[in-house]
C-alpha cells in the first residue's frame, strides 16, 4: 500500500523545514561576517549575505601559522582523549551493567558522588602539577579520563542489549573479557558513536585547561588560542594603552577575522557529525528496553 501525500504531510515538511532552517541561521551569519569587509560589519550591515566580499580574513588566519599549530594540538588531544575515554567507559560500563555484580551499589555510589561534587580548580591543579603532567598533553586528557555521565548512558545501552546474545557466549565458555571483546563490543558501535561524539566535542571545545596547564601559548589547543582572540575591547584597554593603540585598532577590525577563525574552529566537528549521525539512527536504544 503506497501512502498518499496528504495535506498533513505537506504541512509537516514545510513546518519542520522552517524550524530546521532557523537553526543554521547563526552559522550563516557567522559565515557572512567572515567574508565581509570590516567596515560593513561594524556598521551592522551584514546579516546573511557577505557585503564587499573578501577572503582577507581567511588569508590572515592561514598566514599566522599559529592557527594550524593549535589545530594540530587539538586534533592530537581529541584522538588520544577520545580513545582513552572510550576504553575506560566500556571497561566500566560493562561490569556495571550486570545486576548481580559483586558490590554494585558501592560502585554506582562511587560514580554518582563524583558526578555531583568536585574539589575545584586549585587542588586539581596542584595534583596535575605534582604528578609532573604540566605542559604535556596528558594534563588535558587524564583529569577527565572517565566521563561518568556518558558512561552511565553507555551502561544503560548495554543493559538494553538482548540478553540471549551474551548468554550464548557464556554457554560456549567465554570469560567476561572474551564476551566483552567478541560479543558486546561489536554491538556497541552506535552507542560508542554517540558517546564518542560527546567526548570529541568536549575535548575540542574545552579551552580552560589549555590555558592553565600550558606554559607556552604556542602549545595551546585551538579553542584556547581562539579564546585569546575573543578578548573584548575593554579588557584590552585595561591591559595597557599607550603604544598599544595600533593594536587595538587592528583588533577592532579583526572582527571578521575572528568570525573566520570561529567558523574554521567549529568546522571539523560539524564535518565529523554527519558520518556519526548514521549510527545514531541505526538504533540507539538507550534505556528503551528495561534492564
Amino acid at each position: 500500500m503506497k501512502p498518499k501525500h496528504s495535506a498533513f504531510d505537506v504541512f509537516l515538511t514545510i513546518f519542520l523545514g522552517i524550524v530546521s532552517i532557523t537553526c543554521v541561521l547563526p552559522f550563516v551569519h557567522l559565515l557572512a561576517v567572515s567574508f565581509s569587509s570590516s567596515a560593513a560589519v561594524s556598521a551592522g550591515k551584514v546579516t546573511f549575505l557577505p557585503i564587499d566580499f573578501t577572503t582577507a580574513s581567511y588569508e590572515y588566519v592561514v598566514s599566522g601559522g599559529r592557527f594550524f599549530r593549535a589545530m594540530a594540538i587539538s586534533v592530537e588531544r581529541v584522538i588520544l582523549g577520545t580513545l582513552l575515554n572510550l576504553v575506560l567507559m566500556i571497561l566500566t560500563a560493562y561490569p556495571l551493567s550486570k545486576d548481580n555484580l559483586m558490590g554494585r551499589p558501592f560502585f554506582t555510589t562511587y560514580y554518582v558522588i563524583i558526578m555531583l561534587v568536585s574539589g575545584g580548580m586549585i587542588p586539581t591543579y596542584l595534583l596535575v602539577s605534582g604528578l609532573g603532567l604540566k605542559d604535556t598533553i596528558w594534563a588535558l586528557i587524564l583529569p577527565g579520563a572517565l566521563p561518568v555521565f556518558n558512561m552511565i548512558i553507555l551502561m544503560n545501552f548495554i543493559r538494553g542489549l538482548p540478553y540471549e546474545i551474551e548468554e550464548a557466549a557464556w554457554i560456549d565458555g567465554a570469560s567476561p573479557f572474551q564476551t566483552l571483546v567478541r560479543v558486546i563490543f561489536p554491538l556497541l558501535k552506535p552507542a560508542l558513536a554517540t558517546v564518542g561524539l560527546f567526548s570529541m566535542v568536549g575535548h575540542w571545545n574545552d579551552w580552560f585547561s589549555g590555558s592553565i596547564y600550558m606554559s607556552n601559548p604556542l602549545n595551546y589547543p585551538l579553542q584556547t588560542y581562539l579564546q585569546t582572540l575573543l578578548v573584548d575591547f575593554e579588557h584590552l584597554l585595561q591591559s595597557d594603552k599607550s603604544g598599544d593603540i595600533q593594536a587595538i585598532l587592528s583588533k577592532m577590525n579583526a572582527r571578521t577575522g575572528r568570525a573566520a577563525q570561529l567558523f574554521l574552529g567549529a568546522l571539523p566537528i560539524m564535518l565529523v557529525y554527519p558520518f556519526l549521525q548514521k549510527y545514531f539512527t541505526t538504533g540507539l536504544t538507550i534505556g528503551s528496553v528495561k534492564g
Binding site: 571497561l91 566500566t92 563524583i114 574539589g119 575545584g120 587542588p123 595534583l127 583529569p143 579520563a145 572517565l146
Partner: peptide
C-alpha cells in the same frame, strides 16, 4: 576507571 576517578576526582575533594 576507579583508579583514574580516585586520583583525579576523589583526591582533589580535600579542596572543599
Amino acid at each position: 576507571g576507579m583508579i583514574f576517578v580516585f586520583i583525579f576526582s576523589y583526591i582533589p575533594l580535600y579542596g572543599l
